[in-house]
């Protein structure tokens, strides 16, 4: 029981310390602003550890963070292989292909009213298909390796990026387009110099949504057939063997990779759309 009480006391103490720290003048400094959420995270982990140990929770229900960490350290090569297979090969390539195709399609839609009437509903229709239905079909078409996972990711990320880009291309003001017209600018000049820059905040919204969709798609698609590596494959087999610590280890890797992926896209966004009111305030 001492584990449980120790964890609760640590939690209360850390809580009080954070409240005290947040109300100090030093709370404005960068280091303290990073320290407060970090302490919060550590507190959560210690509370988790204490409850699992203090109440003797079985590993199948909830393994302790220390047990998960031990599994991660013991199976680093396996996790690294799964990471390369699922995140780098499956999710990332699918993300790049899907987002690139979506932006090009949006430009084609913008150029032609015919496509505007035809392609958006089809995109919408494809996006509405359930992934558990599409994934096995795409595995049949493109084989067990990462190509079929990339295909699932393409299907998942395409629509949100398409819709956001189409909306973004319509976001420039009438007056700005009139200005371009008075200078005798061509369609492509107007697109490159005005409409694409004006669309960037929208496009990045789609790209950020697509990062998490890409990870989900790549992992779930492996449930329907994959070589003997990959995060989804590992999770489904580990569940079968009741080695939940391995499942948690993969979840930890996926969470880290997903956050990093999102963070990188958000960082690029900050550089590209520095001029937008939503970014200007944060310096």
């Amino acid at each position: 029981m001492s584990w449980l009480w120790g964890a609760v006391i640590f939690w209360l103490a850390a809580w009080a310390f954070n409240v005290w720290l947040a109300n100090r003048p030093v709370a404005r400094s960068r280091a303290v602003q990073l320290f407060i959420p970090a302490l919060f995270g550590v507190t959560l982990l210690i509370l988790w550890e204490g409850i699992v140990r203090g109440l003797d929770v079985p590993g199948v229900i909830l393994p302790a963070p220390s047990a998960i960490w031990a599994t991660i350290r013991a199976s680093l090569p396996v996790l690294a292989g799964d990471f390369v297979q699922t995140i780098l090969k499956g999710a990332l390539s699918g993300y790049l292909i899907g987002c690139g195709a979506a932006v090009l399609t949006a430009i084609a839609i913008d150029r032609s009213p015919f496509l505007q009437r035809g392609l958006l509903p089809i995109g919408n229709f494809v996006a509405a298909l359930p992934i558990v239905g599409i994934a096995p079909i795409l595995v049949m078409w493109f084989g067990f390796d990462w190509q079929s996972k990339a295909a699932v990711v393409v299907v998942m990320v395409f629509f949100p990026v398409l819709v956001n880009t189409v909306a973004g291309l319509a976001a420039s003001e009438r007056m700005q387009r009139d200005l371009m017209a008075t200078w005798g600018a061509s369609y492509w000049q107007t697109l490159v110099k005005l409409r694409l820059p004006a669309a960037m905040p929208f496009i990045f919204n789609g790209l950020k949504i697509a990062t998490t969709l890409a990870l989900i798609g790549a992992i779930v698609a492996e449930f329907f057939g994959s070589p003997t590596r990959g995060m989804g494959f590992r999770i489904s087999t580990a569940v079968g063997q009741l080695s939940l610590d391995m499942v948690w280890a993969e979840i930890a890797v996926a969470a880290l990779a997903g956050s990093a992926f999102y963070g990188v896209v958000a960082l690029i966004e900050k550089g590209v759309t520095f001029w937008h009111p939503s970014q200007r305030g944060r310096t």
């Binding site: 200005l179 759309t273 001029w275 937008h276």
Partner: peptide, 14 residues
């Protein structure tokens, strides 16, 4: 042949 100035400046923020 002409330059046009609108009611709002219409400068591109980027």
């Amino acid at each position: 042949a002409y330059g046009y100035v609108f009611q709002a400046a219409g400068l591109y923020p980027w």
